[in-house]
Design a protein around this nucleic acid. Sequence first.
DNA 1: AATATGAACAACCGCGAATAA
DNA 2: GTTATTCGCGGTTGTTCATAT
Length: 276
Amino acid sequence: MGRQPCCDKVGLKRGPWTIEEDHKLMNFILNNGIHCWRSVPKLAGLLRCGKSCRLRWINYLRPDLKRGGFTEMEEDQIIELHSGLGNRWSKIASHFPGRTDNEIKNHWNTRIKKRLKLLGLDPVTHKPIEQKENTDENTNKTNPHPSIFGGSEENVEIKSLENGGTKEMAKTEGKREENNKVINWDDTSELLNNFEMLCSKLDLGSWMMSQETNTSTNSLCSSSVSMDDTSHLSMDESSYLQENSLQQWVDSMDSILSWDGFNPLDQDILFLENRE
DNA sequence: AATATGAACAACCGCGAATAA
DNA sequence: GTTATTCGCGGTTGTTCATAT
């Protein structure tokens, strides 16, 4: 007898998320927080499994996500961390606030790996490929994870790929099409950035803190969020600003994400109104 | 213009760890 | 201590888009 599936998959939706689903999940989590992923889809009115909701939130909807291509500095740091940590992507991601383990893993597999190969380096061992067979036995005894930044021979300056990041940026900032409905992703990105900006000044810290309290052992995301910026606000100020900016953001998201035939989530709006 | 190929990234799957009962 | 449940992680696959032929 094998392991039971994480959820009853009968009647559950799979594949790419629609804007409406994103909207529902985002609204639910911002209003209620996360207590149990398994119950999230049911309570949020989604035909998805909890695992799928968690992944979508962590990798795509989290307000503190940093989008866009990786900088040269970030790439170098990833390579260095990988040489020491190996494929522990969540550990690596914890060094990059706003980046997800999935994002870093994808970037590694599609770009950095190739770069290292072009430079004659083994992406797994970070050692020169030619000398791998000859030196494996000796080097493994002394240094199992030699960094490419270590010895003079291996101290290779890693340059970004030609046009690095530009394609990704173009893609991210371009149009996003789902279910034959096209929206301008610029607007949503901008909105998320605005919210992030608001959060950094005012409220995200409080929200995250409430999540930490609520979820105790459940970590909300891989990356850590600084609480320092919220410390100067009194509780009243902070919660007032939090509710207002959150309301503004949710309202803005309503207008951006809405399309013909899309019904606003009355329940969620009602919930927000009742909080004031 | 049509087709093939490759790159990038979102999403899924299965496993192990942590926790609850 | 054992079993069941849930979560998080890493590997992998599927889909979309851009570019080459």
